[in-house]
Amino acid sequence: MSVKKVIGLILFLSITASIYASRVDTLVVHSASMGKDIKNVVITPDSYSKKGKGYSVVYLLHGAGGDHKDWLRKAPAIKTYADRYNVIIVCPDGYKTSWYFDSPIDPTMQYETYISKELISEIDTSFNTIPKNTNRAIAGLSMGGHGALYLAFKHTDIWGAAASMSGGVDIRPFPLRWEIAKRLGSYAENQGNWENNTVINLVHLLDGKNLKFLFDCGVDDFFYDANKRLHNKLLERNIPHDYIERPGGHTNTYWKNSIKYQMLFFNDFFESNTNEVQHD
């Protein structure tokens, strides 16, 4: 190999390393509530150190049919966002159709408990995090968008910021889709389960102070109507929030674009809390 080729290869490897300097690992966490081991992708920034200042953490939830690697496949740029914003990103395996709540009829589907308690505890124990809601955010797409707002609305003591893209924020219009009935029972016979576990009915849990959140949806998305109704309900209740609608459907192209803005939203949230602490 010529000297020029060697130099070229070194430059290429250097550029590649600078682009993908973050580290991607798989963390297996045992869920006592479900009696099984669950895989989670954990992305640490290039600056990560187990000593010194802790790191904020962003949890990203996948959609129906996905797994813990789904975000890396759909939006590989999240590796660069970990470096750019100096945060840890965690992508849990929420099963293909868990919908991220604790199923009242299936004890093997307790994903609210898993993510909000078991996973959070393991991440804060195994990594150098700042274990406060002011330094913890959660987002997701589709089923994961529902999950992110569902978990954040119910646990503002755990997450200080949340975001949803193309989220299924009202599951009631879809009684026969995505195995929701397997988690809640049929709508006809278990209406209460559906009413109590749909995001749009959890607005009463918000006081407008303890959670910063953003949600967006494409106008061609089958979840657009539900997102619009959630936005209007929040306006009626005077609950501060950021809402975006733009051209697009339920597609990877939309989500790759959306996550860029949501990560910036989270970064602004983390930095604002850091500045408040410094001024105090």
Rank of each mutant, 00 (worst) to 15 (best):
I244M: 10
L184N: 03
V28H: 04
G94A: 01
K36E: 14
T108A: 14
S98Q: 09
R23D: 10
E118H: 13
G160K: 02
Y85F: 15
E122L: 04
D124T: 11
G248N: 02
D25R: 13
Y85N: 03
W255C: 01
Y187I: 06
I78L: 06
P92E: 01
P131E: 05
L176T: 15
H62L: 07
E112K: 00
T253A: 10
K228A: 11
Y100V: 07
L206D: 10
Y187A: 04
F12D: 02
V203P: 05
E271K: 11
N193S: 07
H155I: 01
D221H: 06
I171K: 01
P104D: 01
S166Q: 05
K260M: 11
N86G: 09
K233Q: 13
N227D: 15
H62D: 08
P173D: 11
S18C: 00
F215G: 01
G8Q: 08
V169P: 04
N238F: 10
R136N: 09
G94S: 10
S166C: 14
H250D: 09
L230I: 15
L214G: 00
W178Q: 05
D93N: 14
I120A: 04
I120G: 00
D124A: 14
T26R: 15
I19L: 15
A21E: 01
R183W: 02
E179H: 08
S18H: 00
M34L: 00
L211P: 00
D106I: 05
H30M: 07
K79M: 11
I115Q: 04
Y95W: 12
K4W: 04
T26Y: 13
I89E: 01
L176V: 13
T125K: 15
I19G: 14
R172Y: 03
V203A: 14
I15W: 06
K228N: 11
Y81H: 11
I89R: 05
Y59L: 10
P104W: 03
G94M: 06
D280C: 05
T251S: 14
C91Q: 05
T251L: 08
N273K: 15
N267Y: 12
D216W: 00
Y254K: 06
G140M: 09
W159T: 09
Q262S: 02
P92L: 10
W178C: 06
T16F: 15
A148C: 11
L184A: 01
N201L: 04
K39P: 05
D221R: 07
V90L: 02
E118A: 06
I244A: 01
